[in-house]
Write a protein that binds this DNA or RNA. Structure first.
Lengths: 150, 150
DNA sequence: TATTGTTATACTCTATAACTATA
DNA sequence: TATAGTTATAGAGTATAACAATA
């Protein structure tokens, strides 16, 4: 009795495919999913304190210390003193990391276009409205802790 | 210059929301994402050898040993001797785990329905066709290693 | 007092490599 | 020889708790 996949199954399968492929792409490099996530946040939000990163990544400050250690020793990020707060450090991307992130964002956009092209042209507007509706609805459910799994 | 999120961004954000909420739901229990994944595979595929699990989860046999150790000591799975191959063990769900997975699948289906309901009724058929089209296209791109991130 | 980031410690997940028991 | 699963070891990611320096 194999079950028909639900829409949620499909949405989660899409991100699994993406993540698995990404992991394979980074195998053998110093990059991992967590590190790329941090680079992505730094690229979009600009230089940040570790507290800021911690909030953006949803992890503890201790984990951010370890994560930034890894990024620094692999040459993707640098720590510099905060201009006014001597307790804090500012984490920023190195030049090579900036170029990497620009390429990655470009690839990302291209992939997104390819995926859209797979949808029947007549279906695209409704498809995009649907994806946005689902995103906002899930965001709302999660915020109101209305999702249960147990 | 905040960028408009692409469709891929939205799809990935949906699964991030889901995963983050799931992690929060399991905080403080013996369950983790990896363990739930294994339980899910066992629930849908039925009892399996560790080799089978390894293939289904896409991890090494060694990792499966550790994963199954965790599931067994938390009371979610049991190892029994393979009926014909004395090298192998058969991993199966315990009664409580079976009930948990049934509840989880039910919650999952309900959530999927709620998400669908957030889509305008007139848009639903096109939305579902689009999600399936994107899934299969990404599957195809990944299989042919036509996705690049670097 | 509160905040920033660290050291100390521990658990989970993953991997490779070498090994045992069985096929 | 090949396969199933283990022990041994290691690295990454995460967490809590205690601490130092600074606000």
């Amino acid at each position: 009795m194999t079950m028909e996949p639900t829409i949620l199954d499909r949405l989660l399968a899409i991100s699994s495919l993406f993540q698995a492929d990404m992991q394979r792409a980074f195998a053998g490099t110093a990059l991992t999913e967590a590190r790329v996530h941090a680079l992505w946040v730094l690229h979009h939000g600009g230089p940040s304190t570790q507290q800021g990163l911690s909030a953006a990544l949803g992890t503890t400050p201790r984990s951010v210390s370890a994560l930034v250690d890894g990024l620094v020793s692999a040459g993707y990020a640098e720590r510099s003193p905060h201009p006014t707060d001597r307790r804090a450090v500012v984490v920023s991307l190195t030049e090579p990391a900036l170029r990497l992130m620009e390429r990655m964002q470009e690839d990302h956009r291209r992939l997104s276009d390819q995926l859209i092209e797979s949808v029947d042209a007549a279906d695209r507007p409704a498809f995009e409205r649907g994806v946005n509706a689902v995103f906002w609805r899930l965001d709302d459910l999660v915020r109101n802790e209305a999702v249960s799994y147990r």
